[in-house]
Amino acid sequence: MAIEKMVPLMLGGIRDTMYMTVVSTLFAYLLGFPLAILLVLTAPKGLRPHALVYRVLDAVVNIFRSIPFLILMILVIPLTRLIAGKAYGSTATIVPLVIAAAPYVARMIESSLLEVDPGVIEAAQSMGASIPAIILKVIIPEAKTSLIVGATISSGTILGYSAMSGAIGGGGLGQIAISYGYNRYQTDVLLVTVVLLVILMQIIQAIGMYISRKTDKRIRE
């Protein structure tokens, strides 16, 4: 493909991919964060153990995580139509992306929150801290570094999902790779999208790691 056609195509692809990744990650966190906090609180050794709530949430998360993304996308097409008005394009892809990513994000956050030293939580309880105070002032701030690392990994995974969505009508670099590179045998386009996806992933990873290192107070100077 000629360079003057390739550049605008790729710029559009990058824009759509970033749009899907960023918006989906945001929504996945909006759903996943409360879910993770509920899981941590109601767990058998949590601050408010509740067997029923814990088991139901745990099962729901596991079920959604075990459905392959491509199949999930097809399964939720009716819901996608309902929310986005159509089943193809970047905006529509956000719906299945969020549904697939939220349980994944919830597990990432859950494991970060569980890393917090139980002794510090006990100390807060011994001072008379309420459960909201323990969550907001102890668990989340203490887990901050791990949460940022988790967010980096999660948005990388969502970037990968968004590219996959190109197979059945999603937008962005994934769609370009499939419609030009696979359907029309334009290997140069395929290679450029792959290189761009690798660069995007590197950028996300570098930014995430930089922030997490910068904010961690456990490292001696």
């Binding site: 030293d117 002794g119 510090v120 006990e122 100390a123 102890v138 701030p141 203490e142 901050k144 570094t145 961690d216 107070k217 456990r218």
Partner: peptide, 8 residues
């Protein structure tokens, strides 16, 4: 083990 907040 003191149980201090490591991030404060």
């Amino acid at each position: 083990h003191f149980n201090l907040l490591q991030q404060r």
